[in-house]
Structure formats: C-alpha cells, structure tokens
C-alpha cells in the first residue's frame, strides 16, 4: 500500500453560531491508528467527515500526502479515504452485492464480482449477499459498512463507532480490519465512545466539553511528538 502522512492543523468548525470544533491538530503516518474519543455530540463524527473531505472546515488546514504527493482537493481526497459510520446508508431496494458493485463501479475499482462476494464473506454476510439491504438488521448493516470501507482499500481508513450494533464476532471483525489496515501501512482514525475499542489505537485524542459548551475542543492525549498539545497516554 502507498505511504501516507496526514497533518491536521488547528481545525475548527462552526454550524452557524454553534461552534462544534476548535483548534484540533494531529499528525499520523503509515501504520498508525489514532482513536478519537469523547462524549456524544463532542464533534468526533464531524472531525472525521472534515478529514474525509465531506465537510469543509471553518478554519485550519489538512495536509494529506500519499506517496509524497500532496492531495489538496476534497474530491481527490475522497479517492484515498474510506469511511464507515452510522450515517452511511445503502440503497434498501438493492441487494448488498448490488450496492457494493455499484459503489465499486462509480469508484472505478478494479474489482470483480468474486471480489465483492469475498468482501461480503469476510464480514460474515456471505450467505445474505443477495438479500435487499432493506431487510437487514442493524448489525448486518454495520457489517456491510465495514465491507464497503475495506472494499475501497484506501491508505486512510476512517471508522466512526465501528462496533455499533455488532455482536462479539463483529467486534473482533473491527479489530481485524484495523490490524489489516495497520499491516498494510495505512492510517486509521477511529472515533469511539467505547474505552476498550479506543485501546485499539496507538494513541488517542479526546473530545472535550461536548454537551454543556457552545463549542468543544479535541485535546490530544496521545504521542506528544505527533499530536499538538499532547498528554502522554500511558
């Protein structure tokens, strides 16, 4: 896999008068897993979407470098990012296989039908690939999100609450997905409320003052060399 470096500098985001994020900085390189923890509404998901190029930040910069080539445009950034989060939905009238095939086609991935079937088998949906997604349980939809993210096979993997609605086997699947990404030399940003899941990260940044404040600030608690304002984790 390509070598990757992501540098987030002083990112802030406001929706109208409501400030959601302020002054987030971090840096991560190939093989690293950074957990983004914090209370509900602290801006973890917004942060991941800014990194994915899905939301424009109000302030700050994100520098994404893949194989020493800087990727600046949000449209181009999305081509090197895969994302799985609770708000990622699929076409309910299409089967899981049809959904993945469609997204592979529009992303112009060199993937065959057998490859798509393998992606479904890998997340435990091998026998249900021909069922419409509309009849899937919440846990099955979560597995499909993981299949979607891993199928894209990008150097930057963004996981937002990846164990949501999953059984024990599913939770193991999340850990395996993260380990595979690490082994391939990719970067993973993992947003989670679960302290055990956060342990999958090499270091963590924590959302602060989510509910009671008009804004929240992500404070680094990870590796001091790579995360601004960092406090050592252990």
């Amino acid at each position: 896999m390509s070598s990757i470096r992501i540098a987030v500098e002083n990112i802030g985001k406001s929706f109208g008068a409501r400030r959601v994020l302020r002054g987030i900085s971090l840096e991560a390189v190939s093989g690293e897993v950074v957990a983004v923890t914090g209370a509900n509404g602290s801006g973890k998901s917004t942060f991941l979407k800014i990194v994915a190029g899905l939301i424009r930040p109000s302030s700050g910069t994100i520098t994404l470098t893949v194989d020493d080539r800087e990727i600046a445009e949000p449209d181009a950034r999305r081509r090197v990012v895969s994302y799985a989060g609770p708000d990622l939905a699929f076409y309910p009238e299409l089967t899981a296989q049809e959904n993945l095939s469609f997204f592979a086609e529009v992303r112009t991935l060199p993937i065959t039908l057998a490859g798509i079937k393998n992606s479904l088998v890998a997340v435990g949906l091998g026998g249900r690939g021909d069922d419409p997604v509309g009849v899937y349980s919440s846990g099955m939809r979560q597995r499909l999100r993981l299949a979607f993210a891993t199928m894209l096979d990008t150097p930057l993997l963004l996981l937002d609450e990846p164990s949501l609605a999953l059984d024990k086997e599913g939770v193991r699947l999340v850990a395996q997905t993260i380990e595979r990404q690490r082994a391939k030399g990719g970067v993973t940003l993992l947003a989670t409320n679960d302290p055990e899941e956060a342990e999958l990260g090499d270091r963590a940044i924590t959302a602060n003052g989510a509910r009671s404040q008009t804004f929240s600030t992500l404070i680094a608690v990870g590796g001091p060399a790579l995360v601004s304002g960092g406090i050592g984790k252990g």
Binding site: A52, L54, D75, V81, F90, V106
Partner: peptide, 17 residues
C-alpha cells in the same frame, strides 16, 4: 433523505452523478 448521498459522495465524482 435516505442517507445514501454520503456513500455516493465518497465514491463518485460529481459530474458522473
């Protein structure tokens, strides 16, 4: 409404959509 726009934005170019 169905939230599929997110996956579409992640995978497809605007002009193709």
């Amino acid at each position: 409404e169905r939230g599929t726009a997110l996956a579409l934005r992640l995978t497809a170019r605007a002009s193709a959509v």
